[in-house]
Design a protein around this nucleic acid. Sequence first.
DNA 1: GCCAACCTACCGGGCGGTCGGTAGACTACT
DNA 2: AGTAGTCTACCGACCGCCCGGTAGGTTGGC
Lengths: 219, 219
Amino acid sequence: MTALDNAALRAAATAANGEQDRRAEIYRSAARIFHRKGYHATSINDIAAAVGLTKAGLYYYIKGKQDLLFAIMGFAMDQLDEQVIEPARRVQDPQARLETIVARHARLITQDSSALTILVNELEGLLPDDRTDIIGRQRDYVDFIADTLAALRDEGKVVGLDPTVGAFSLVGMILWISRWYRADGRLDGDEVVAEVTRMAISAVLNRGDHSNAGNPGTG
Amino acid sequence: MTALDNAALRAAATAANGEQDRRAEIYRSAARIFHRKGYHATSINDIAAAVGLTKAGLYYYIKGKQDLLFAIMGFAMDQLDEQVIEPARRVQDPQARLETIVARHARLITQDSSALTILVNELEGLLPDDRTDIIGRQRDYVDFIADTLAALRDEGKVVGLDPTVGAFSLVGMILWISRWYRADGRLDGDEVVAEVTRMAISAVLNRGDHSNAGNPGTG
DNA sequence: GCCAACCTACCGGGCGGTCGGTAGACTACT
DNA sequence: AGTAGTCTACCGACCGCCCGGTAGGTTGGC
């Protein structure tokens, strides 16, 4: 619930404030509502009401609906950079690095999925230039994972797996958490993160074949 | 591209027609546009224009935008039942059954992802009763996978994995294919299906630990 | 008196949806 | 053969509503 608190603090080191608190609250509320109802189904009035303003009052703080979306996605991407990619870059061993990526990304989602989920679900709501920007950063992330899988392959720990397909698949597994995980559910966040991390590692590490006595039954 | 062709044919065995062809074409076009732009960002005019009708003309065939969405999702769910769940039910061996599920679901997505993707991304566009219906059917699917994982656990092939988390994670991996797979890409559909199926099986089958000499680096 | 922080009132436009109509194919009756 | 009626498959024009966004205040703390 505190994920967007520093969104504004980062952007503006200007002025010891109160305005920035308000702006952060707006971004946070908008992210929550976009996440719940979707970008297009959310009106500017919805957001204004959620922060106790009228629509016109809200426009004192924001430039427009699309800028709001881009700001939220940019924040989510920054979060991914700082909390996942940068820490993982400092891990030399490829397997440990992969574990770091999956665990940290998964934890981010169990803690507050709204901005990160908007990041992947509302791309088409962006202006073309903004979309290009965000897609590029997402692509870099997938490439980073794929490079890690390629390094594992060079070590002989991964055999016969296309790094790109592997990277996309792991990302899919992680992102999907936001669709089913509930903080008040049977498992707590740490347990979910641990389970998913184990599955992810197991999915890519190859130690023998999985041939099966039974009928594959695919045809 | 032919995924929705029989949508109407199935519903109406009545009357050798032409009206049903048109209706099927409408559903197919709508699915494609909803998939590309999202439900809320798609106007009734967009769909009408895509099938060469005016908005008023389109309403001769459909009851409304939400009914259109529900029909598409119902079709996608039927497709999942017929092409994935029913065939898998007939496979006794749990591991072979899991392979069947993943491979068939993945193949469905590489062949035509529009309806199946709408099924998971546009739930909030439905009327409450329709949403309850669809969510229930989706839940049954996840439970079916979880039961299969539980059977694998009883056989000793899966150790220390929560079946529900496992099921959700596999579903996430599969559904994500529609976001990155391109028919004209480096790998063809069958290769992608095979890769993802191998990863899925590997993710859940437990044959020893994955302990790593390096630093897990998660903290 | 000034400026940050709002508000009321409004705008143009696009939305989902409806209404009354009609061209044209087909049928029915004379 | 002609013509009146009927039905399918549409269309142009329109409705009320709500949207994102703005112009022009007003208010309260400094």
